[in-house]
């Protein structure tokens, strides 16, 4: 068992070759392929055409949670044992802005990271991989039935793949 469904794995050197292959695959009706690239690339993003990542909602909600916690904590703890310090009001909003701000950033950053982990985990698909895809090659893996593999293979070759192999 190889841990991933059978299919075709193509390796590309040229960026436009890879994006051409992606577009043609989409025209042929393939949706669940995986594209590997060593760097984030805008052209690949456009070709694949995902929606904007939902991670931003995590950042926003994390930040809002942080600002609320910050003000709530500092105010509640001040009033829980009221003690006048330096002649200032017990619960002083002006300095507590700092606490609220720091927690906004802290919660926002942690939530963002949690969002990446969560969404990457949810959108992960088992797929064949090659170590060169983190070095200098762009990879496309298309899971498909054995009888269709040759068609996909020739598609990739004609759009300029450097190497295509069938994965059982």
């Amino acid at each position: 068992m190889s841990g991933h469904p059978g299919g075709v794995l193509g390796a590309f050197r040229q960026i436009d070759a890879a994006t051409d292959a992606v577009r043609e695959l989409k025209e042929m009706g393939y949706e669940d392929f995986t594209v590997y690239s060593p760097v984030p690339n805008h052209e690949i993003e456009l070709a694949v055409g995902h929606k904007v990542s939902p991670v931003r909602m995590w950042t926003l909600l994390g930040g809002l949670a942080g600002v609320t916690t910050g003000f709530w904590m500092s105010l509640w703890m001040s009033y829980d044992w009221p003690l006048v310090v330096g002649g200032k009001p017990i619960g002083s909003v002006i300095p507590y802005v700092v606490i609220a701000f720091e927690l906004t950033v802290l919660f926002g950053a942690i939530a963002t990271l949690a969002g990446v982990v969560f969404h990457s985990w949810r959108t992960a698909k088992p797929a064949a991989f090659d170590g060169r895809f983190t070095d200098d090659m762009i990879g496309i893996f298309v899971p498909c039935r054995p009888d269709r593999r040759n068609a996909v293979k020739s598609l990739m070759e004609s759009s300029g793949a450097a190497e295509v192999r069938l994965e059982a």
Partner: peptide
């Protein structure tokens, strides 16, 4: 604006 306000608020 806040930097100025905070310092003045504390210094009183």
């Amino acid at each position: 604006m806040y930097s100025q306000l905070l310092v003045i608020w504390y210094g009183n």
